[in-house]
Amino acid sequence: MSISTAPTETSPTRLMRAGEGAPTVLDVRDLRVTFSNDGRTVTAVDGVSFTVRKGRTLAIVGESGSGKSVTSLAIMRLLPEHSARISGSVAFEGRELLAEPKSAMRDLRGDRMAMIFQEPMTSLNPSYTVGEQINEVILRHRPFTKAQATEHGIAMLRLVRIPSPEQRYAQYPHNLSGGMRQRVMIAMALACDPELLIADEPTTALDVTIQAQVLDLMRELQGKTGAAIILITHDLGVVAEASDDVIVMYAGQVVEQCSVEDLFTFPQHPYTVGLLGSLPRLDEKRDRLVAITGTVPDMAEPPSGCRFQARCPFRIEKCAETPALAEITAGHFSRCWRAPLETLVP
């Protein structure tokens, strides 16, 4: 199957109308990440573009392996240099991060841009106290004395509502509950008041009451600091509740991009339809869930044409050709030949 023309991408700068007024903090253009490990080449992220604005939250949602974490690690330049090749552009407050020297990246990380990882136990060092680890971040980026750093750090713990923060400061990560560890991570990430916070599955390891608190907390702190947030999650409920805009990734590509309101009102990509359909319903009893059959394609040999075609019930012949991410309705983009999907329902 030959692909006749290169897909023409509609400019995603026209996205995110609601936050139009807010300045752009991060502008990612045509980001591509290729890993080469012993002869095997995997393009984990394949031409991803998006914009994050001040005070807004962009969710990146998709199944595991779809390239969400690699996207965020590429932005932070945290991928192993010997195996990862990154191309495209990542402009952070006008600076091209892909061209910055390593030392400049180290200065930026934890300061102007910070990251929260999924598993707080692996990202906190078990052999240092909570306080030592928070102090290290603060002292790395601020001209504070140790006493000032401690004072600031304890204030941060109080901000994320950790009870008796003075005592917690002297404790080790394993002395804290999962929710507390995650809040410590948030405190650490926000210690230097970053412009951009990337949270990779920040609540996945937490239970609902604490998840609700952490999501509230992130919103509240965003209201105070105006940080732009990239929220990476596989949980559509979290997307609905905690973000403004959303991109849906599948096999390294953006397949849908729109406001959260639009996504949940009427998705325009069959993959998103399947994802929403496979959620257990809270308001009715169903015997079976609408599962998407099969699994994600092997990224070492992505299928030509639409990458979702092997699992897509709406597939037609044309799907053997590569669809472009096209604007279906104002601000709502989909990479599907059959969009607008309104045509598929009576």
Binding site: P163, Q211, L215, D216, L236, A240, T265, L276
Partner: peptide, 27 residues
């Protein structure tokens, strides 16, 4: 009731329910 009110719902923001019974504090 608090647990149920903390469930996230995959619905548009304009249709999200009010959050009355949320628990505060930690375990």
């Amino acid at each position: 009731r608090a647990l149920l009110s903390a469930i996230t719902v995959a619905a548009p923001p304009s249709l999200q329910r009010a959050r009355a019974a949320r628990l505060h504090g930690d375990l």
